[in-house]
Computed example of a mutant assay.
Amino acid sequence: MLKIPPHQVAGHKAGNGKLGPLVDESGRFYKPLQGDERGSNELKFYTSFSSDSRIPEHISKFFPTFFGTQLIEASDGSGLKPHLVLEDLSVGRDNPSIVDIKMGSRTWAPEASEEYIQKCLKKDRETSSLPLGFRLSGIQIYGNKESGYWKPERTSVQNLPAEEVKLILKRFVSSNTSTDMDMQPDCAFAATVYGGSTGILSQLLEMKAWFEDQTMYHFYSCSILIMFEKGLALEGQNPGGQIKLIDFAHVIEGRGVIDHNFLGGLCSLIKFISEILTAPSEHKSLVSSVNGVN
């Protein structure tokens, strides 16, 4: 039985006659294969990457498992359409807190059309992509059984300045419920989610070490998903913090050159996470642009 992903925070969403991804009960994620070069490019990447013996195992774990393609009924009612079949990254998680972070100060590949480049340039300039090297694409933060999720509109988090981005990343690991938007984030779970030998920061540093060396691919307009189980954190258990790299429609060959665009954004994100771990109590007041998305 196919259904709309309950924990999707960014990207094209199915429902109301719109084409979007679906999931099944077996833990597979069905992403519609776009009909232009973006679809063929993403399929090419997954096919190449999944069989590339040069990719070390400790790096391949950061990418969704690829199961090929399959014709299924599209979510918009348009009939059978080819879909990428991927690992459902939220499977097994009851109440995950998730943030989708689009990486790079430039989200367009050099081979893109002039029209597409101008469209991306406009968005990169109007959001935090240019100043920070990344932007928040979407987020959901689990509060508790009573409050449920805080899931603001994407546009309200995409163009936040540096201090407010850091504030959201603090709230992501706080015990404050999703309705307590006037309260300063307490960062109660920063150490257990971001810190530690297997925490988010450690995983980001592991990914960074590979990007400092790899010249096979340039990852334009890709996202890093950060996930953890708030419920487990509230119970004092391991929250299962995890990162995954997703969205590969604009990946191109590296041709022996380091991907400085992605690496720069990754270093910026690592700096933010490191500062939260080092001084979690330092913050500025929430501003109306964040308060207004309850």
Rank of each mutant, 00 (worst) to 15 (best):
F211N: 01
T215S: 03
Q184V: 01
E212F: 00
T107S: 14
K122W: 02
A10I: 05
D259Y: 00
G265F: 02
I246E: 07
L234I: 07
S26L: 14
H83E: 06
K271V: 00
G143M: 08
S129A: 14
I55L: 03
I276Y: 07
P96G: 08
S50K: 13
K145T: 07
Q184N: 12
K123P: 01
L232E: 15
I273C: 03
I226R: 05
Q8V: 11
F172S: 09
A233E: 06
P131H: 07
Q70N: 06
W150K: 07
Y30P: 07
D24E: 06
G148S: 11
A112K: 15
E73K: 10
S174G: 13
M216A: 12
P131T: 08
G17K: 11
K44I: 02
A74P: 06
M103N: 10
E73V: 04
S53M: 06
E42L: 09
G27W: 08
K244C: 13
G199Y: 14
A279V: 07
S53L: 11
K170C: 03
L130F: 04
S97T: 14
K122Y: 02
G11E: 04
G77Q: 07
P5Y: 13
K3A: 13
G92S: 11
T65V: 15
V251Y: 10
I246G: 12
S223N: 05
S175Y: 03
Y194P: 02
F272T: 09
H83W: 05
N261V: 08
G138W: 04
L132I: 01
Y46L: 12
W210R: 00
L19Y: 09
L121G: 10
A249S: 14
E275D: 10
M183D: 09
P64W: 06
T192C: 15
W108A: 15
M227F: 09
A109V: 06
P185M: 04
I224G: 05
L160R: 11
E73F: 02
I252Q: 08
S175F: 07
P5D: 11
L266A: 02
L136D: 07
D100P: 09
Q203K: 12
D247F: 04
P5A: 13
V99K: 08
N41A: 15
I55T: 07
C267F: 00
A249I: 10
F29I: 03
K208R: 11
S178G: 15
E42G: 10
R106N: 08
H250L: 09
K151G: 04
K122T: 10
G148F: 11
S97G: 05
A233R: 10
C120L: 00
M183T: 07
Y217C: 03
N95H: 12
K18R: 15
L121K: 14
D213G: 00
S137W: 03
R28Q: 11
I101R: 06
G92M: 14
